[in-house]
Design a binder for these strands. Structure first.
Lengths: 195, 195
DNA sequence: CCTACCGATCGGTAGG
DNA sequence: CCTACCGATCGGTAGG
């Protein structure tokens, strides 16, 4: 519910949709909820946006792009693999802290898109996955990382671990994004066991 | 769509609901879809079940209980922490392999329950979390695991990593649940870095 | 940007 | 377990 101040724009609608989808998920948020949030009747939203699904698509794509933008330079930095993994995790946590709700939407709710739109998103998800895949493969090739029977599991579980932070991270919590990133990087690199 | 053979029971309805909720999520699966799956008209489902939400609640609770049953004895086995973590991960993967779809529902879709029902589920989720918390704290206390500034992050990220396997595991894939469990346990215990 | 409304679909029920 | 239907809500549109 907006108290009648300022113009409504596609950006404002997206912003409120991020919040609502993040809290309650796409299928259970109605155009009437979004309308209430920006102070418009449901039908009037279509002056600014073309459909509910288009709204979701934009949110998901931008949500993933934020991560690509932040992590790609780290991967291409030429530093040793361990430093790059640490840097990638740190960059991931920075983006997460800045876009928790959008990340929640991007990570899981692309499944509500039509199959054509899912293809667009899948391409971006693959690019994200390849970033971690590169660090890991190059790290194993250089001997910085240990050889392992199933490096794919390491890639997917590292990403899964990072994305799972979305489910419990809170900007108001006692753990900062940097704290969490450091702890995650330590665990990923040296493990839990006493060396 | 069932081809008119055998009696319909609450169990059959639950079984088909697990599959449908797992594939498409609770809010976008209608009672008409479930009816089609078991060969009943939507209204007739209410002979066997009391409500759609009750159906979800049972699926989620049983889904979590499967994990509690499998992992609790491992945690209480009295073995060293590293062996128990390995055993807990292995047990987790066994349950996952046997109940992929139910796990998908249990992990994320409890959010669609009413707040009273969410409380029931939260209690079970906490019990699950405490299992890993115990292994980790006892491992640190005994010196089997390294001291770390934020053990909570290790607990939550380990669980997050395990639950994320749900999103890419396939019984038809080349990686068995045991393969994945071993790789995860190695990564969690000794990390990626060359020692 | 609102008024007024569309057809479709939702979970669930009464009465048999 | 079906027939027949309930009120509510859905995303979206025509016409102004």
């Amino acid at each position: 519910m907006r108290s009648s101040s300022g113009p409504v724009s596609a950006e404002l609608i997206e912003q409120e949709a991020v919040r609502l989808f993040g809290e309650r998920t796409y299928p259970v948020v109605g155009m009437r909820d979004i309308g209430d949030a920006v102070g418009l009747l449901p039908g009037s939203l279509y002056v600014h946006i073309s459909s509910k699904e288009e709204l979701l698509l934009r949110i998901v794509e931008r949500g993933i792009q934020n991560y690509l933008d932040a992590i790609t330079p780290v991967v291409e930095s030429g530093e040793p693999a361990a430093a790059r993994l640490r840097g990638a995790i740190s960059a991931h946590m920075s983006v997460l802290a800045a876009t928790v709700e959008q990340t929640r939407v991007a990570v899981h709710q692309w499944t509500y898109l039509s199959s054509e739109n899912q293809k667009q998103v899948a391409a971006m998800r693959n690019r994200y996955e390849e970033l971690f895949d590169r660090i890991l493969r190059e790290g194993i090739a250089s001997g910085d990382f240990r050889a392992m029977p199933h490096p794919r599991v390491a890639v997917l579980s590292t990403i899964g671990m990072l994305n799972s932070v979305t489910e419990w991270y809170s900007p108001d919590g006692s753990l900062t994004a940097a704290d969490i990133g450091e702890a995650l990087a330590d665990n990923a690199l040296v493990g839990l066991q006493q060396p």
